[in-house]
Amino acid sequence: MTTDCLALMGHMSWLGWLMPLAVLTLLGLGIAALLKYLFTSTKPSTGARS
């Protein structure tokens, strides 16, 4: 399976290597943003809001 995948990526030249890296990068950034959103606590502000 890995050999077939690498052969296909090599056959597609640079685009075959760029697309998986771009997808993994975007996926990692999305997971990092989700974790940051879930684990950062919003503290209630004290005082009056205008």
Rank of each mutant, 00 (worst) to 15 (best):
K36W: 15
M1Y: 09
T3G: 11
W14C: 01
M12S: 03
Y37F: 13
H11T: 13
R49I: 06
L38I: 14
S41Q: 14
W17I: 05
A32H: 11
A32P: 02
S13Q: 15
K36A: 08
R49M: 07
L8G: 02
A7R: 13
T25W: 01
D4T: 06
G10P: 02
W14H: 05
L24R: 09
T25P: 01
K36N: 08
S45K: 14
G47Q: 03
M19I: 15
L18T: 06
M1D: 13
L38D: 08
G30P: 03
S41T: 13
L8T: 14
F39T: 12
A33P: 00
L6I: 10
D4K: 13
M19V: 14
L29I: 10
S50E: 15
L15P: 12
T46G: 07
F39S: 05
H11M: 05
T42D: 12
M9E: 03
M12Q: 11
S50T: 07
L26N: 06
D4R: 07
A7P: 00
W17A: 07
L6Q: 03
G47K: 04
F39K: 04
T2M: 11
L34M: 10
I31C: 05
C5R: 11
W14N: 04
G28K: 08
K43C: 08
W17E: 01
L21D: 01
T42K: 09
M12E: 07
P20S: 04
L15G: 08
A7D: 14
T25K: 01
L27F: 03
L24N: 05
A22R: 01
T46L: 09
M9N: 00
G30S: 14
S50H: 12
T42Y: 03
L26I: 09
I31N: 02
G16I: 00
G10A: 06
L24I: 15
L8E: 13
G28S: 08
L6F: 13
L21I: 12
W14Q: 09
M19T: 12
A48T: 11
M9C: 11
T2F: 14
L26D: 03
W14K: 08
V23W: 00
I31V: 14
A33C: 10
G30F: 00
L21R: 11
L26Y: 06
L34F: 08
F39G: 07
P44S: 10
H11E: 15
M19C: 01
P20C: 05
G16V: 10
L24F: 05
W14S: 02
L15T: 03
I31G: 02
C5A: 15
F39H: 11
L34V: 11
T25N: 01
H11C: 02
W17P: 02
S45N: 09
F39V: 11
M19S: 10
L38S: 02
G16F: 07
L35C: 11
P20G: 02
L26E: 07
S50D: 15
G30A: 06
T2K: 14
A33S: 04
L38G: 03
T46H: 08
A7E: 13
L26K: 04
H11I: 00
L21M: 15
L34R: 11
W14G: 03
M1P: 05
L27H: 02
C5L: 15
Y37W: 14
P20W: 07
K43R: 15
I31Q: 09
G30I: 03
T3N: 11
G10W: 05
V23E: 00
T2Q: 11
V23K: 02
